[in-house]
Amino acid sequence: MSDDTILSVRGLGVEFPMGRKRFTAVDGVSFDLRRGETFSLVGESGSGKTTIGRAIMRIHPISKGEILFEGKRVSGRIDASAERLLRQRIQMIFQDPMASLNERAKIDYIVSEGLYNFRLFKDEAERRAKVEKALRDVGLIPEFASRFPHEFSGGQRQRIGIARALVMEPELLIADEPISALDVSIRSQVINLMNRLKRDRGLTYLFIAHDLSVVRFISDRIAVIYRGRLVELAGAEELFAHPLHPYTRALLSAVPLPDPEVERLKKHVAYDPSIHDYSQGKPSWSEVSSGHFVLGNECEIRGWKA
């Protein structure tokens, strides 16, 4: 683990009880987040991408592996100080701005919830000042503090959600599909805001999404996840220029681009998991070129390296 690693996920496994059996949602996922980068986790529904985010936040218990934040273990049984570290320095932004705010609480309470939990203010005046600043930082008027969530539109609500995270002065933000529930004209407000915060405060993002083409614009590195396992990880441009894993290729070809010429000439590639012949050798997580990892067996890796 190098010095600039802020979060390290090692061999993470998450299982859910399903009747008598257990369903494996995440299986042996490992990755490192570097300080100040935007790392995207891309997959379809049921791929386990949301589960990973929630496992880091200790919402789902993990069954395998460990998670380190700034070198300190924050998974499994941890003491109060580690919990405090996690709850303050890692924050989350949610997908559905209509569901992620408490409708019966004023914006003032919603934004200060974390401050109350950890008594992060000397007096009432300081708390108010912090809330006001957080609202201003996301482009909202401080007077909105005395209002209730249903008075706001989706984009404004999503920014309130970001303010709630920002007020804690986090280092890592886990953003779980923060723009997919928003209208097209609102999305860029949130993307610009997130990019600006990253630039100004050196925030690190774990960005969870299903749309590769949107992710390309904001990510430094992208990991593709399929049925609970990472299949490919590379720098954003590298992944688009040289996608190796057949699932990545299928995903790239599937996303429709807002460009009629490109779309007209595009052929969709379907992914069929049975094309892998893993009777000859189990697939492993291998570095094909510097920083470009793929899941495959020896034979496949050899072909991809060539």
């Binding site: 097209v184 004209s185 860029s188 993307i191 610009n192 990019n195 949107v214 390309r216 614009f217 807002p258």
Partner: peptide
């Protein structure tokens, strides 16, 4: 305002 058509590192056009 579409990120797919944006240039990385530049602000996206955003509708207020």
């Amino acid at each position: 305002s579409l990120p797919q058509l944006g240039v990385k590192g530049e602000e996206l056009y955003s509708i207020k």
